[in-house]
Amino acid sequence: MAFVNLKNKEVQAKVVFYGPGRGGKTTNLEYIYNKFRDRIKSDMVSIKTHGDRTLFFDFLPFDIGKIMGYDVKIQLYTVPGQVKYNATRRLVLKGVDGMVFVADSMVEQREKNLLSLKNLQENLTIYKKSIFKIPLVLQYNKRDLEKQGIPVMPLDMMEKDLNSQLKVPYFEASALAGDNVINTLKKIISLTMASLQNVLK
């Protein structure tokens, strides 16, 4: 539900980072914030618990400049990944235009990725949106762990688990090191903007 302001020629679109708890959603936004600090005029907003876990969401407004004559603001959000926070997760999804699903590559997180993706599909249904139609990018995060000898799932296993039906663009990433974080962001922005094209005439 991007808002297109015909008066100011401004577009506000919402991109939500989803995925299992501790998968690296907040770390993605932190990397983006640090990387583009000079371009991002606001602070990153995080509503978190004392234990530093996302309680409600993180929020980062990202100005991408002019597209087709419109000033485009992408509002980046993360959801709390923990299972118990489903009610707040739903609230953040309201009006979402594009999604990044951050999957955790650690072998022991396999089941959690599947459950979270299923949960996303259910929560989108509440807003009459389909996971098959919404602009979506998969990010297989924490690939750097392999170098430290921590077992990560092979790419084809993750593809088969998560992307065999969706068939959306994916990236192997390390949000901590910044590998492919910006490519993930660029991809979801371009998919989201493409989905808004017929509105921006």
């Binding site: 539900m1 919402k14 602070d43 929020f59 407004p61 979402v96």
Partner: peptide, 28 residues
Amino acid sequence: DMAGNIIAKGDNGKCNHDVYALAALASA
């Protein structure tokens, strides 16, 4: 709106709050 988009705004010129963050937090 309830998704956190700013539809319209007005101010007395003396305010420089981060209105986009305010909108996101207020809607949530």
